[in-house]
């Protein structure tokens, strides 16, 4: 099982709003599943866009995203939401996403939201006439317990707090049994206690062999937990290397203000 995950020259342009905004400019990256990669950069630098481009839910202007032999996203897609070919679905199922704003179904229960991670294992008939199997529910309950949510299993997601929703999204990404976990600020809404717990659980998944690409706001945390740092600024790659190579100079380039007045 090679887990070759690669983005080739991806650009993203958002053309809604007053004028088009360039999200990403021709970024090429290769990821190694044995590493935890952290993406950093100032607000609006394209971190979330990069994650969304990698999981294929943002239309690409140029470039490709490959996972193993399967194409995950391509600029040739006429409408990014309408490609449901077998290989595309397979590629998507192998990359799990923890969304920044959780992206959970507010009107469904916590359990149902987590089980959605295993939808790709269900047939059309099962989707219509049967709920999720007991095995999947047990597994979901296990992850929810690991993340301290065992008492909220049958609660509607709309009744949860931000931090709880974030942990539900994390549990779903675990249940997906993916090769990769892509987290968009997975600790943003968590207090210190749960942050530690979630970092530990992410490390457990890493030991199980799941590659990780995480957007982390907290630079200290990013330098501490990652094996590789990727820094973005204005949609461009400005740093790519191990945390040991990160210097004050780089901080200045990435986060420094042009001119203080």
């Amino acid at each position: 099982m090679s887990q070759h995950f690669e983005a080739q020259g991806i650009s993203v342009v958002y053309d809604r709003g007053i004028k088009p905004v360039v999200g990403l400019k021709k970024i090429s990256l290769e990821f190694d599943p044995s590493q935890i990669t952290c993406i950093i950069g100032p607000s609006g630098s394209g971190k979330s866009t990069l994650i969304k481009a990698l999981i294929g839910i943002v239309p690409l202007k140029t470039g490709l995203v490959h996972l193993d032999e399967d194409l995950l996203s391509s600029s040739d897609d006429s409408h990014y939401g309408h490609n449901f070919s077998h290989s595309r679905q397979q590629a998507r199922s192998r990359v799990a996403w923890i969304a920044q704003d959780y992206c959970l179904s507010n009107n469904s229960t916590v359990l149902s939201n987590v089980c959605m991670g295993a939808l790709y294992k269900k047939s059309l008939f099962d989707t219509l006439f049967q709920g999720f199997s007991q095995a999947i529910k047990d597994k979901a309950y296990g992850y929810l317990t690991e993340l301290g949510l065992e008492e909220k299993v049958h609660e509607k997601v709309r009744r949860l707090s931000g931090g709880q929703k974030q942990r539900v999204a994390i549990a779903r990404s675990y249940l997906q049994d993916s090769w990769w976990i892509l987290g968009d600020e997975p600790f943003a809404a968590l207090d210190e206690g749960y942050k530690k717990q979630v970092i530990q659980s992410l490390r457990n998944r890493h030991k199980e062999g799941r590659g990780q690409i995480l957007v982390v706001h907290d630079l200290t945390l990013a330098l501490e937990m990652s094996d590789r740092i990727i820094a973005l600024k204005e949609g461009q790659l400005v740093f790519d290397g191990s945390p040991e190579k990160w210097t004050e100079q780089h901080w200045e380039t990435v986060f420094g203000l042009e001119e203080l007045s």
Binding site: I57, Q89, V95, W97, S105, Y120
Partner: peptide, 11 residues
């Protein structure tokens, strides 16, 4: 929400 369900590889 639909995007996040799609990203799990659902049909």
């Amino acid at each position: 929400v639909a995007h996040s369900v799609m990203s799990t590889g659902a049909g």
